[in-house]
Computed example of a mutant assay.
Amino acid sequence: MIYGSRYELLPSFLIGFHGTDVKTAEKILSGKGHLSSSENDYDWLGHGIYFWEYSPLRAYQFVQEKFKWQGRNEKVAVVGAIIDPGLCLNLLDAKGLGYLEAGYDALLTERGGEEFLPKNGDGKELWDRKLDCAVINMVHELRALTQSDDWQDENPGTTPLQSYDTVRGAFWEGGPIYPGARIEKKNHVQICVRNPESIIGYFRPIQDS
């Protein structure tokens, strides 16, 4: 039994948070700019605009850490976004994980062997997800391929695969939150927006008193 792509459509809006510098945040909140897509080769969920799902505090903590690594002294801020996930490569779903396996196989074939694949980092380099990034980007490439005229000519009667609007994944990191715990200090869910039209609007998060 195979379930269709209707279950890849996430029906509800999501709230995401993105950390940045104050100048950029105010430009976005004033309607004079938009967040830019990240296209690093180590991005955890491939290329796109990144948000922490329902976690303004984690967005704030991360941008503080990031600016410290980069030696930046700007004041940090958090921008909230209302996101329509649309067609989502959901890595918390069995079907999404199956596409990930197919993406790895395609990347392996394209590169000509495991020794030619990018590597994920170890230890202190856990942030470096070059392999995961390449695999997820390959999933998007495979879907785009089915939309080409050549592919459709070679596969008459086969429905092309729609491009994903977003990618969603959960990550466990930071070490045990208390001795013996299976829950870690920095567990979180990230949303990577590939289709900018999925961002319905930006807002200024309300700070707790």
Rank of each mutant, 00 (worst) to 15 (best):
R6N: 11
R6K: 10
Y7V: 11
Y7T: 13
L14F: 14
T20M: 00
K23L: 01
I28Q: 03
S30C: 03
L35Q: 05
Y42T: 11
D43N: 13
W44T: 11
H47V: 07
I49F: 01
Y50E: 02
F51K: 03
Y54K: 13
Q64K: 12
E65K: 08
K68C: 06
K75R: 13
A77V: 02
L89K: 04
L92K: 14
G103Q: 07
Y104A: 13
T109H: 12
T109L: 14
E110F: 09
R111L: 15
R111H: 10
G112A: 09
F116K: 15
L117Q: 09
L117V: 11
D122F: 12
D122C: 11
G123K: 05
K124C: 08
K124A: 14
L126F: 15
R129C: 14
V135I: 15
E141C: 12
A144S: 13
Q147M: 11
Q147G: 08
D149N: 11
Q152N: 07
D153V: 09
N155R: 04
P160V: 11
S163C: 08
D165Q: 08
T166H: 03
G174E: 06
P179W: 02
I183P: 01
N187R: 08
S198R: 10
I199R: 00
F203K: 00
Q207I: 14
S209F: 10
S209R: 09
